[in-house]
């Protein structure tokens, strides 16, 4: 009885490994190259990089892009923020579409100041056209703003605030047990 169980388990493990390996090989063949992202597309990630860099720009300290805020948002969109997946897909496409019509360029190709102006229009709820109806401009702007702040100023364990950059910038030691202040990731 015991022997049989052991054999079964070993066979099961062997099969699972083969299975997983097989899947991995297959997916590599099907969509090369593998995306480092969980939810967003490669193109969306470039747009998000530009957006989060607008919310928290690089100055003497790294900005949203280098702090991994895009990674934070991507990670949360397959976790607690799964409910915002649709908003992101729709909102990112709307920004892309608007920029193409208005400037014949991608958002991330615009000069920094023009990007800022674009987001200020969104923030004020003054975007025109069907894509932005019912206050979606304002709403999507707030989502990006709040999520960027969370990614930059929240714990690195969630995928942003790379190397504790915001904590270092604010001169705050983490973790916070007095006498044991140190950074560890």
């Amino acid at each position: 009885m015991k022997k049989q169980l052991k054999l079964t388990r070993r066979r099961f493990i062997t099969l699972s490994v083969l299975g997983a390996g097989g899947m991995c090989l297959l997916s590599r063949c099907a969509n090369p190259p593998l995306s480092p992202w969980r939810f967003v597309t490669e193109q969306e990630s470039k747009l998000l990089d530009a957006l989060v860099e607008q919310i928290i720009p690089t100055d003497e300290w790294p900005g949203g892009r280098d702090a991994g805020v895009t990674n934070f948002i991507d990670m949360q969109l397959t976790g607690p923020y799964a409910r915002y997946q649709e908003s992101y897909r729709k909102g990112l496409a709307a920004i892309e579409e608007t920029c193409k019509t208005k400037f014949q360029k991608r958002f991330e190709e615009l000069p920094f100041e023009e990007q800022t102006q674009f987001l200020k229009t969104m923030e004020a709820g003054k975007m025109e056209g069907k894509l932005w109806e019912k206050g979606f401009d304002r709403q999507f702007f707030r989502l990006i703003r709040d999520h960027s702040m969370q990614g930059f100023y929240g714990s690195p364990r969630h995928g942003g605030n790379k190397n504790n950059v915001s904590y270092k910038m604010m001169r705050l030691d983490y973790p916070v047990i007095i006498g044991q202040n140190r950074y560890n990731n």
């Binding site: 607008q54 919310i55 928290i56 720009p57 100055d59 300290w61 900005g63 800022t116 987001l119 703003r145 960027s148 702040m149 969370q150 100023y153 929240g154 915001s166 904590y167 910038m169 604010m170 705050l172």
Partner: peptide, 23 residues
């Protein structure tokens, strides 16, 4: 740190360079 991002005098920027510098 994150909750402080919402603490600003009235009329202050809620994002961008000025917001980061205030932080």
């Amino acid at each position: 740190p994150y909750s402080f991002t919402g603490i600003r005098p009235p009329g202050s920027a809620s994002w961008g360079k000025e917001h980061k510098a205030f932080q």
